[in-house]
Amino acid sequence: MESIISEDTYIPGEKICSASHARSGHGTYVRDGYIYASLVGKAKIERELNTKTENKTSPQQITSLPIVSVKTLKDNIVVIPHIGSLVIAKITSVNPRYAKCSILSVNNTIVKEKFSGQINRKDVRATEKDKIEIGKSFRCGDVIIARVISLGVVIAYSEAGHRMIPVSWNEMQCPVTLLKEFRKVAKVQPEFINYVEPKSEDKQ
């Protein structure tokens, strides 16, 4: 990765460049085909080095456009825990079904305001889920590392046998019969999107 930081400072609403030349990163937004700044700070352009691009197929070449992001003062970064982020937290209360914790840092950045989280009994480990006891896993005051998760359905087939499309957080719709069925739909994280993307599966 190669990165360049611009000389001039951008303020919210200032146009940075055309959206066809770059992708929008943190602190920017796309509107009418242009990338605008949404934070006060210097623009940072990140480009992946062209070492492996010849081997890659066309879809990956699209993603190798430089990323434009706006960088603010370091201790002024606003972080809130998103699904998929790695957090460090302190256990505040324990009961047989779940433990509560207050989040101290998100992705190595300390959070300014307190956020609280909940660890359910079945999420403590991946194996032998029935034998988990919260009391033997955590005590109050322990500092833990955890990943923010959201459980839910990623792939589901309708009664007619077609792959359904999520339409809201608790509904999925069959593309053929247009019937809606209730599901707890997951929010898929970017690193897992390749597993779920329906197009790539259809090709194979």
Partner: peptide
């Protein structure tokens, strides 16, 4: 809001 680094469309 701009000073607090909250993302804004515009001032």
């Amino acid at each position: 809001l701009a000073n607090a680094s909250i993302e804004l469309y515009d001032l």
